[in-house]
Structure formats: C-alpha cells, structure tokens
Amino acid sequence: MPKHGKKYRKAAEGAEVTGLTVETAVKLAVEKAYAKFDETVDIAINLGVDPKYSDQMIRGAVTLPNGLGKEVIVACFCSGEKEAEAKAAGADFVGGEDLVEKVKEGWLDFDKAIATPDMMAKVGLIGRVLGPRGLMPNAKTGTVTFDVTKAVSEVKAGRVEFKVDKAGVLHAPIGKVSFGADKLLENFKSLLETVNKLKPSSVKGTYMKAVAVATTMGPGFKVDPLSARKYAES
C-alpha cells in the first residue's frame, strides 16, 4: 500500500467512519483540507447500475449554482451566424472546418467543446482525438445544439458533465475548498438531484449504493447513501 505523509494521516483521522450525513461529510472534507493550493472538492457515487446495458449508462450534465471556481476555456465548432452568437456568449475559440483542422494538427488548448448538429460530421473526424480526453461534444450533455448561446453560457457558468465508468462509479467536481461548506452543499444537492432523476426504470433495488466526498489531496469521507438520497429529494 502507498505510504501517506503526516498531513494526510492527520486529515484522515475520522475518515474511516461510515454513514455520515451529506452535511457532515462536506464540512469534514473542507476542514481537513491541508494543501497550499485551493483544492477541488470531488464526489464519487457508486450506482447500482450495469453500464454494459445502454439503458443503464448514466450520463448527463448539471449547471452548478455556484460554479466550479475556475475559468473554463470553451471551443465552439459552428459556422455562419452561429459563430457570432458563440462569440457573444463568451466562447474563447470559434470556428468551423478551420478549427477542426487546428485540432488535427495537435491543438487542444480548451476545456470544453460545443458543436452545432450540422458540424458533427466534421467534428466526428477528430473524435479519436477528442473522445479519450472527454472533449467530444454530445447531445445527451447538451453540447451538440443549435442553441450555442445557452450551451456556452452554461459551460462558462460551471456546467459539469458526468458519466459512470465501467464499474458503475460516477465522479464529478462540485467546487473549491474556498467556497466553504454552504456553497459546496448547494452544488452537491444540484448534482444529487440530477443523478437521482436519471435513475433508469430497469434498475431495481438500491440506486445510490455508496457516496464519498474528497478534496484533491485529502481522504474520502463516506456518506450514508440514504442520507444522500433524502438530501437529493428534500
């Protein structure tokens, strides 16, 4: 097992406790943060789904009420009047085939990509580049749309995309330690509400099997799944 430093071991005191409320887990994660930089607070949710079945592949997006605490660089693949709309909405890079060619040459200086439906044939040519980096626009997450004004604005405001991995675990950031517990809890609630609404009808039994909160450098604090479900529904 990897050895952790004194600061981590100190922060991990109490992390072995299970069944914490959502509020307690978030407050502990914030209080125990020890890095010299402003750590990101991440959520891990183990869902009772089997991603090998298409109807149980949980994927979506949520615009966090308090954002993510960082600047998001957006590239928008579009043409014509949509280019002006994207620029007005705050997109950092806007273009059509020229932007596709730029990516083909190795340029990837952006965090999120948005595309209009008519551009997807071209964007599909760079799917092998964008896909593995989580940058491929997708209609299910609202990043393939003609409403580029809304899409760009939401991404800039703190829109978080999420998808379960092969083990059925979903990971998502909810902000920075500097936000404080109250703002992080508001973001956490928005995430939980969205994930809860995406529960497939084919899933029987427990949907949220395990939930944990952790900062970039800190230990994970385990939330009582029932508490998480109630928090999402409150």
Rank of each mutant, 00 (worst) to 15 (best):
G124A: 04
V123W: 09
K156V: 02
I174E: 07
S153H: 00
S202E: 11
D147Q: 05
T149I: 14
V148Q: 03
K166P: 00
N196C: 10
R159T: 08
N138F: 12
K140V: 12
E154Q: 14
T194H: 09
F162R: 01
V177E: 08
L192Q: 03
S201P: 15
A172W: 12
R133T: 05
L130G: 02
P173S: 02
K140M: 13
S190E: 09
K176W: 08
A121V: 03
V155G: 01
V148G: 08
A172V: 00
V195M: 06
H171E: 00
A151N: 09
V160Q: 05
I174M: 09
F146E: 12
T145I: 03
D165Y: 06
A172Q: 03
V203C: 01
I126G: 06
H171K: 03
T143I: 06
D165Q: 05
D165I: 08
A157I: 01
I126H: 03
E154F: 05
V155R: 06
P132W: 02
A157Y: 07
A181E: 11
K189L: 08
K163E: 10
A172E: 05
R133Y: 12
R159W: 08
E193V: 14
M136Y: 15
V203W: 12
V155T: 11
P200S: 05
G168V: 07
K176N: 02
K140S: 10
L130M: 05
G175L: 01
L198G: 09
T194D: 08
S190N: 11
G175N: 05
N196W: 15
L191G: 06
G158T: 03
V177K: 07
T145W: 10
N187L: 04
G134N: 03
K204S: 14
A157K: 13
L184C: 06
R159P: 15
T149Y: 10
S190P: 09
V160I: 07
A167K: 06
V160D: 09
I174L: 04
K204M: 10
S190Y: 13
I174K: 10
N187Q: 08
V195P: 06
